[in-house]
Simulated assay, not measured.
Amino acid sequence: MAEADAEAGGLQRTLKDLVAGAAGGIAQVLLGQPFDIVKVRLQTTSQYSGALDGATQIFKNEGPLAFYKGTLTPLVGIGACVSIQFGGFHYARRQFEARNASIHPTNPTLSYSQYYASGAFAGITNSVISGPIEHVRIRLQTQPHGHNRLYSGPIDCVRKLSAHEGVLSGLYRGEAVTILREAQAYGVWFLSYEYLMNADAKRNLVKRNEIPQWKVAFYGGLAGEMLWLSSYPFDVVKSKMQSDGFGPNKKFASMRDCFGQTWRSEGLRGFWKGIGPTLLRAMPVSAGTFVVYVCSYLVVKR
């Protein structure tokens, strides 16, 4: 009976994590999409001298709505992704807590390596859907403007990508580097946030739920900066592979080939193109994600 109650309680907590995470994901997309299209353009082309020039040219040549190109896919998909991220993280965290409790009953608290592992687990789990979602978004963001468009929308893009090389090689192109990026990024994201929250609670002798919302936002924002600083080269390679051509127009044979070509042609700098708008985006987006998640979790908990 006790085990059944525990399982039901665990399932209920996971469902709350998923619902709250979905709300955080929607906030993430609405706040970050304009920054993201500039980042992707800088990563995949050399037609802009920098972030400001990229944003100016997009606005001038394609209009203000261009900053929300491909938004429908991430709006639906990233909500699901962030939902999985938080659900996966807290599931792994509870598994570590149960294991720790069996070894040290008086102190089941996670070590920081376990926080990282929980975040990495969440990222790897999330990559199953984030890979194709981001591939479609990048194709829509980088396609020619106006009558030369390659895809009429997300569904058409999925259909054409799958038709080129099949689902695994077409729609799931770049999945290996996506898994590496997600594991590193979300391992560091959750680790940074948990460290900052725990340090504040210890320093001020308060419970974590007593930490004010502005601090939750600030720590979430800092965690977002750490996420990108720790994983950005993987993201550049992923964007290059997912905007690459097909058949005779394909430049990169594999993830390793893409890393090699980027290094030979652009050097170390090539792995950090677009980092400026990415870091500008990271603070408000990550802050908003954590605040909306915490608030949504409290509402669902009632």
Rank of each mutant, 00 (worst) to 15 (best):
T71W: 10
G88N: 01
F86H: 10
L72N: 11
A66W: 03
P64T: 07
T56F: 09
A66P: 02
G63D: 00
T56M: 06
G79Q: 02
A80C: 00
T73V: 11
Y68Q: 15
P74K: 03
T71M: 12
F59M: 12
F86G: 02
F86Q: 10
I78T: 14
K60V: 12
L75F: 03
K60A: 15
A92L: 11
H90M: 08
C81W: 07
G79S: 06
L65T: 08
H90C: 03
I84P: 09
I58L: 15
V82C: 05
T73W: 09
F89A: 13
G88R: 01
R94N: 13
G63N: 03
G77A: 06
I78R: 08
V76G: 10
E62A: 10
G70C: 06
T71G: 02
Y91L: 01
P74A: 00
L72G: 10
S83V: 08
N61A: 11
G63M: 02
F59Y: 13
Y68M: 15
P64D: 04
L72H: 12
R94H: 13
G88P: 01
K60F: 08
G87K: 01
R93C: 03
Y68K: 14
A80D: 00
V82A: 06
F89C: 15
C81Y: 11
H90K: 05
T56K: 06
P64R: 13
G88L: 01
I78G: 03
G87P: 01
E62C: 10
I58E: 13
I58A: 13
N61P: 04
H90L: 07
Q85A: 09
V76N: 06
K60R: 15
S83I: 08
Q57I: 07
R93H: 08
K60Y: 11
I78Y: 12
F89N: 15
V82F: 11
F89L: 15
V76D: 03
V82Y: 10
F86C: 02
F59S: 14
F59Q: 09
F67A: 11
L72T: 14
F67S: 13
P74Q: 03
K60S: 15
G88T: 02
Y91I: 00
N61E: 14
K60W: 14
S83P: 08
G79D: 04
Y91P: 00
T73K: 05
L72W: 12
H90I: 05
K60P: 06
T56C: 05
G87A: 05
N61F: 09
